[in-house]
Amino acid sequence: MTTSRRLPGPALDIAVIAASLLDVWVHVHCAEPLRLAAGLLAAFSLALRRHLPLATFALTLPTTLVTDAVFATLAALYSLAVRTRHRWLLAGCAIAFTVSDTTSWNWPSPEFGDPWEPWTIVSVSYALGTAAAPVFLGQLVQAKRELSLRLVEISRAREHERLLTAQSVLAKERAQLAREMHDVVSHQVSLIAVRAGSLQVSSRDPETKGAAATIRQLSVRTLDELRHMVSVLRASESGPAELTPQPSLADLERLVLDSGIEADLCTDLPGDLPATVQRAVYRTVQEALTNVRKHAPGASATIRVRHEDGVVHAVVTNTPSGRPALPLPGAHHGLVGLRQRAELLGGTVTAGSTPDGGYELHLSLPAPKTS
């Protein structure tokens, strides 16, 4: 793509004035003070052509009447044609130039030729054509500028239309997702909560009642979050909705207690860590405990979270499984998501088996204090 290079405004004005002075120097003799004054006035008045084009043309017209130096008048006529839409005004200025250029002004009395002589007709036609050239060129430049502005407006309108179309498609997808979450996921979670509540009431085993109570509490909490997410998705067309409060380090203890796993939590972190780091630590511990429940039932876990030399370390270690794991569905995206989150924050996530047959998940994040 090529870009047009133009002279800066002041440099172009200086060049036009210099060309006009050269025209005066060629056509006007120093011994003619009146003509010389008219030529100099016309040349230096071109500095006003951008802001006062009509006044500039009026100041340059006398030099056409008394001299053969017409460059300044033509430049002023071009500047006027670029900046005005009044066609009758431009026609009048062109006629004024033609009359001035074809009139022989001998001070103190002008001389007018016979308008019906062939030479006079040729001179008038030539002068009129000379005046028409800057007028047509100026109007062409004006039309080009207006066309460029229209093209920019059309491009912006099309870009806005594409944005609206994309937002409309996204809103439809969100509405469909909201319906699926409401009709399928919320219904199934509600059934889990109801069955867990029934088991809690009917069971006489304290351990079973406690497990059922935990399942019911987690199901109810999950159902509330799902309902809030459905409202967020449905409100996407009318404007942004308030998101659910994000977890922090203060929620770790409750997360461990509700996990249903025998776990030992030890934290040594300042309370002024960035919110993104706190969420990453919480989600890492949450994912690790979920994997322990799924893949190592009956195992115990140890959670160690500490802050050393500007780096947060979160290590979750579990013992070997106490009984065979039940086959549960999963997309195997948990660790991938944790690694991606850590990389975005400049950290790392490592995971692997321990020598005793257990498993260890280690998160390292750079975490300068916010204070």
Rank of each mutant, 00 (worst) to 15 (best):
residue 1 M to N: 06
residue 2 T to V: 10
residue 4 S to C: 06
residue 6 R to N: 03
residue 8 P to I: 00
residue 9 G to C: 02
residue 15 A to L: 13
residue 15 A to H: 09
residue 17 I to M: 10
residue 22 L to M: 11
residue 28 V to G: 15
residue 31 A to D: 09
residue 33 P to F: 12
residue 35 R to Y: 11
residue 37 A to E: 09
residue 37 A to D: 12
residue 40 L to F: 15
residue 40 L to P: 09
residue 45 S to Q: 00
residue 50 R to H: 12
residue 50 R to W: 06
residue 57 F to E: 07
residue 57 F to M: 04
residue 59 L to F: 06
residue 61 L to E: 01
residue 63 T to P: 05
residue 65 L to S: 03
residue 68 D to N: 15
residue 71 F to D: 08
residue 73 T to E: 02
residue 74 L to T: 07
residue 77 L to G: 03
residue 77 L to Q: 10
residue 82 V to L: 12
residue 89 L to H: 11
residue 89 L to P: 05
residue 89 L to T: 14
residue 92 G to C: 14
residue 92 G to Q: 12
residue 94 A to D: 09
residue 95 I to Y: 09
residue 97 F to M: 11
residue 100 S to K: 11
residue 100 S to T: 02
residue 100 S to G: 03
residue 102 T to F: 13
residue 105 W to C: 06
residue 107 W to Q: 03
residue 108 P to T: 04
residue 111 E to C: 04
residue 112 F to M: 08
residue 115 P to I: 08
residue 117 E to S: 10
residue 122 V to K: 10
residue 129 G to E: 10
residue 140 L to S: 07
residue 145 R to C: 02
residue 148 S to Y: 06
residue 152 V to S: 13
residue 153 E to D: 12
residue 157 A to F: 03
residue 164 L to P: 00
residue 170 L to N: 03
residue 170 L to S: 06
residue 176 Q to W: 05
residue 180 E to D: 15
residue 183 D to P: 03
residue 186 S to V: 13
residue 187 H to R: 08
residue 187 H to F: 13
residue 189 V to M: 14
residue 196 A to N: 05
residue 199 L to E: 03
residue 200 Q to P: 07
residue 201 V to I: 15
residue 206 P to L: 02
residue 208 T to G: 01
residue 215 I to E: 14
residue 223 L to G: 11
residue 235 A to V: 03
residue 236 S to R: 13
residue 237 E to C: 10
residue 238 S to I: 12
residue 240 P to H: 11
residue 243 L to Y: 06
residue 244 T to G: 01
residue 249 L to C: 14
residue 260 G to T: 00
residue 262 E to N: 11
residue 265 L to N: 09
residue 266 C to A: 10
residue 268 D to F: 10
residue 273 L to E: 04
residue 276 T to M: 04
residue 280 A to Q: 15
residue 281 V to M: 09
residue 286 Q to E: 11
residue 286 Q to N: 10
residue 286 Q to K: 08
residue 286 Q to L: 15
residue 287 E to V: 03
residue 288 A to W: 05
residue 289 L to Q: 02
residue 292 V to C: 07
residue 298 G to H: 13
residue 307 H to L: 04
residue 310 G to S: 00
residue 311 V to N: 11
residue 316 V to Q: 06
residue 316 V to H: 00
residue 325 A to L: 07
residue 325 A to I: 01
residue 326 L to Q: 14
residue 328 L to N: 04
residue 329 P to C: 15
residue 335 L to V: 12
residue 336 V to D: 07
residue 343 E to K: 12
residue 348 T to H: 02
residue 355 P to N: 05
residue 356 D to L: 11
residue 357 G to M: 02
residue 358 G to N: 01
residue 361 L to Y: 03
residue 364 S to G: 01
residue 367 A to P: 12
residue 369 K to M: 09
residue 370 T to D: 04
